[in-house]
């Protein structure tokens, strides 16, 4: 069983080199800005920013298109709903159907906004490895420690989980083969029967995974891991001047978009 689990596209581009914290803040600012002001002009500014970032990152457009594919369905739905139910003068009437011009404009705006949202989000996940993203989010959520949220431990859990994903996939594969060798079939029958066929896969999977987790906990404690104790990093995050420049630039563009 092989599949790409992360959307990350490795490459050496100016966008890839930015500090992940800077990218997270910039994308969050763009996304919030996108929803604060609804005008085509503001949308155009955000769209240009997203496209410029995309071109700078050198990620092939095919990868972006692949990321957009899941939302096509939603876009179609939005168009249909707005065309049929938005108020305003009709430009086309067919019996009880009442297609309004304003609905068309709203649908166009909403769809474009979603596309810009998706492209901006993809820009982050396509250019930042998941581990770096985790580190950035852990760093940014440090204020939550005051509310006794164990952010360091949560970040470590995410890192371990990312490490476990390929292991679990391999495990599922092995167990399915083992059960097939015993005569199990996972492709025969309707959905219900197929779901039931997964039981002999899931039970061993959980037993194995939990055993592995308990071993991991033991190994960590044997190496003196102490939950809640301050930890050092092999690769500490370093912000550079270019990160500050990008943040100022994004802030300026958001202000511009909110004003025009």
């Amino acid at each position: 069983m092989r599949m790409a689990i992360a959307q990350y596209y490795p490459r050496a581009s100016p966008i890839h080199r930015l500090d992940p914290r800077c990218k997270v803040v910039a994308v969050a600012a763009l996304v919030v800005g996108l929803f604060l002001r609804s005008s085509f002009a503001a949308l155009a500014v955000y769209g240009l920013v997203a496209v410029a970032g995309l071109l700078l990152s050198g990620v092939p457009l095919g990868w972006v298109a692949r990321g957009l594919r899941p939302v096509v369905w939603l876009l179609v739905l939005t168009f249909v709903v707005q065309l049929l139910f938005a108020p305003g003068p009709a430009f086309y009437t067919l019996g009880p159907l009442h297609l309004s011009l304003r609905g068309l404009a709203i649908a166009g705006y909403l769809s474009l906004r979603l596309v810009v949202l998706v492209v901006a989000s993809l820009l982050l996940t396509l250019t930042t490895p998941p581990i770096a993203l985790t580190d950035a989010l852990a760093w940014l959520s440090r204020p939550l420690r005051r509310l006794r949220v164990p952010t360091e431990e949560l970040a470590l859990m995410v890192t371990i989980a990312l490490r476990f994903i390929p292991t679990l996939m391999q495990e599922i594969d092995t167990i399915m083969k083992a059960q097939r060798a015993r005569g199990a079939s996972f492709t025969r029958g309707g959905p219900l029967r197929r779901a039931r066929a997964l039981v002999p896969v899931l039970v061993p999977l959980f037993i194995l995974s939990f055993r592995r987790a308990d071993e991991l906990a033991l190994a960590m404690e044997a190496r003196c891991y102490l939950p809640g104790a301050p930890r050092t990093r092999l690769h500490p995050l370093h912000a550079h001047r270019r990160d500050a420049v990008v943040l100022v630039l994004v802030a300026a563009l958001v202000v511009l978009a909110e004003l025009i």
Binding site: M3, I5, P70, P150, E153, L156, M157, V158, I160, A161, L162, F164, I165, T167, L168, M169, I172, L205, F206, S209, F210, R212, A213, D214, L216, A217, M220, E221, Y225, P227, G228
Partner: peptide
């Protein structure tokens, strides 16, 4: 939070992701 809870939690997280990716492969 104990180390054991941390390790088990990570496994739950990984299992959730794997199953999501599996259903994602079918576009669901």
């Amino acid at each position: 939070m104990t180390t054991r809870l941390l390790a088990r939690g990570s496994v739950y997280a990984a299992a959730y992701v794997v199953l999501t990716l599996l259903s994602g492969a079918f576009g669901l």
